[in-house]
């Protein structure tokens, strides 16, 4: 299991009702293709950063969609924006655009 630096003591569940889905809503609006993800992992397989560190773009965007923002916030800036993920995604998701949108949302918040 990836260690994000802290543990959730209360519950292991994704508390969907309590989570803040603001970022998810923002990204869904900004990057409509993001909804097409099926989590195949093509992006995270090819990712230069992902092969060297725990940065995992597939997981980050899944966590974002579930509102688990604390778990990936610190990871976003590890992305080099090289666009390889964008070039392999079989679903035509603008993966790079999603990262940019997440960074933008976090900054504005």
């Amino acid at each position: 299991m990836v260690n994000f630096g802290f543990t959730i003591s209360v519950t292991r569940a994704v508390e969907y009702d309590k989570n803040d889905k603001g970022c998810a809503e923002y990204v869904a609006l900004r990057v409509p293709s993001s909804s097409a993800c099926i989590g195949c992992g093509g992006c995270s397989a090819t990712c230069t950063a992902g092969n060297l560190t725990e940065f995992n773009i597939r997981k980050i965007q899944m966590l974002m969609k579930r509102g688990e923002n604390q778990l990936y916030k610190e990871q976003l800036h590890k992305c080099m924006l090289c666009g390889k993920c964008l070039t392999v995604c079989p679903r035509g998701v603008d993966t790079r655009g999603m990262i940019l949108a997440m960074i933008e949302y976090m900054r504005e918040k």
Binding site: M1, V2, G39, C40, G41, G42, C43, S44, A45, T46, C47, G50, N51, N56, R58, K59, V88, P90
Partner: peptide
């Protein structure tokens, strides 16, 4: 469960693949 993103060849002709084992959650 993971889509192979790319393959390369080593000097002995074996094929090295990059894939994420999405159920483990790490690139393989």
């Amino acid at each position: 469960r993971g889509r192979v993103s790319e393959a390369s060849e080593d000097s002995e002709g074996r094929v090295a693949i990059k894939v994420e084992d999405t159920l483990v959650g790490r690139p393989m």
